[in-house]
Structure formats: structure tokens, C-alpha cells
Computed example of a mutant assay.
Amino acid sequence: MLSILLVRPGATDFDDQRRIKGSLDMPLSECGREQVRRTAQDVSTFHLRAVYSAPCESALTTSAELVAGRDIRVKAIPNFRNVDHGLWHGKLVDDVRRQHPRLYRQGEEYPNLICPPEGETVEQAKQRVFKALRKVIKKHRDGAIALVIPDPLASIVHCILSGEGPKSLWLSEVDTGNWELIELESSDLREPAMV
């Protein structure tokens, strides 16, 4: 059995302000640094075989804290970059709710279908991350590994690994500084269904 620690990096200033960060590369905020310290303490009892990270600064900083004192190198995976929110980068989530109520509702009810202007759909991000996940998981049949991925992409990874449906895009947009354990019985991932 493979144990996967799915770690959301600590918060950035945009997360603290409830702004859409998407694929923007930002450092951790003071709140985010504290979240990372707590997360590193929480997962310190796991004997990790590997740590794979999104290539953004917040994920790499979080990963570095997780491997401190361990004989593990962090491997950055380009396809673990967060969802590209195009022209919505930097917008307040509340502004999208007020200015685009129909799109906001769609992000709550059918997050796989939403596509910000000049961005990518959640479905496109799912297909991209699935390929990278399959390669990582084939390398590890058992033991424990950590995946450090920001939301909303971490929520997409959760859906792929658990088989559960997607949650609201807006809830996952500002979900930071936590982790969950997912146990995989098989290293054979199923291709995610297209919507």
C-alpha cells in the first residue's frame, strides 16, 4: 500500500487576502510560514521515501521544510504547477462572485467546466496533472511519499486519487497550509473521466 501525504503549501499574501493566485509564483506570508512549521511537525513521524513538489516558490519552500533533517531531495514536477486562471489572477474571489454571479455559481456546481479568460479549464489541468501523477506513483508501490501542491490543483489531485467528485472551485482556491493522508491500494491510476 502506498501512503500519499497531499500537502497544501502555506498561505501567500494573495491567499490571506482571498485573491485568486492560480499559477502566480509568490512567497509564503507570515501566516503561511507558521502553517508550514505546523505541517512539518505534523508529518515528521512519517518515513517519507520522496517529496514531489509543484515548481512554485510557496510549494518549494514548504517542501524544503518537510525534508529538513531528512536524507531526501525535493523533486519539482512542472506539471504540478497550479491551474492557470488567466485574467482572473489577482482578483478577489468576492469580486468574481459580485461581478460574474453566473460564472461563480458554475465554479461551485460544475468546477470542471469553468474557464477563466485566457486561462485553462479545471478539466485541462486534471488531464495535465494525471500524467505526472501516474509517473510518480509507478515509481512507488509502497511506503510513504509527499506531494506538495497548491490548491485548487491539490483538490484535483485529491479527486483523482480518491475517486471523489470535485468540490467548489472557490473553496479550494483559498485552502492552504494543511495536509491529508490518502492510502492507495494499487499503483494503477484510472484515467480521469472527461466532463
Rank of each mutant, 00 (worst) to 15 (best):
I77Y: 09
V157H: 00
S172E: 14
V129G: 02
R134W: 07
K167R: 12
P101R: 12
S172I: 06
Q106M: 15
E109A: 06
H140N: 13
Q127P: 00
H100F: 13
V83N: 01
V129S: 04
K75P: 00
K131T: 10
G90S: 12
Y110S: 13
G165T: 14
C115L: 12
R97F: 00
D175T: 10
V136M: 01
V148K: 02
R134H: 09
R73N: 11
D151N: 15
D71M: 05
R141G: 12
E123C: 07
D84E: 09
Q124P: 09
R190M: 13
L133Y: 11
R105E: 12
P150M: 08
I137E: 01
K139I: 01
D71K: 10
P101F: 08
L87Q: 13
C159N: 13
S63C: 01
P111Q: 02
L161T: 13
Y104H: 02
E185D: 15
R81M: 08
A125Y: 02
R97W: 00
P152Y: 05
K91A: 10
R141E: 12
H85G: 04
L133W: 11
E118G: 03
S186V: 06
P116L: 06
V67W: 13
G119I: 03
A64W: 06
E180R: 07
L103W: 11
E65C: 02
A146T: 04
E108V: 11
V67A: 13
A76S: 13
V174R: 05
S172T: 14
V74W: 00
L92M: 13
D175A: 13
P166L: 14
Y110E: 14
R102T: 14
I72W: 05
D95L: 10
D142M: 07
V74M: 08
S63L: 09
A76L: 02
G119L: 00
I182V: 15
H100Q: 15
E185A: 15
H85C: 12
A154S: 14
H89N: 12
S186T: 15
E173R: 00
G107L: 06
P150I: 05
C159Y: 00
H140G: 04
P111G: 02
W179T: 02
V74D: 06
D94C: 03
D84V: 03
E164N: 12
S168Q: 10
K126I: 09
V83I: 15
N79C: 09
R102S: 14
I137W: 02
L169M: 03
D95T: 11
I160H: 02
K131D: 01
K135F: 04
L133D: 12
I156V: 13
V83G: 01
R97S: 03
R190D: 15
E120W: 01
R141F: 03
A146R: 04
D188F: 11
L66N: 01
K75L: 10
P152H: 01
E118V: 00
K91C: 11
G69P: 09
R141H: 11
W179I: 06
L92Q: 11
W88F: 07
D142Y: 10
C115H: 06
E173C: 04
P111A: 02
V136T: 06
V122Y: 03
H85R: 03
V83T: 04
P101S: 07
L87I: 11
G119T: 07
E108P: 08
K131E: 05
H100S: 14
K91W: 14
R102A: 14
S63H: 08
D84P: 01
P192R: 08
I182C: 11
Y110G: 05
L189K: 11
L153D: 00
V67D: 14
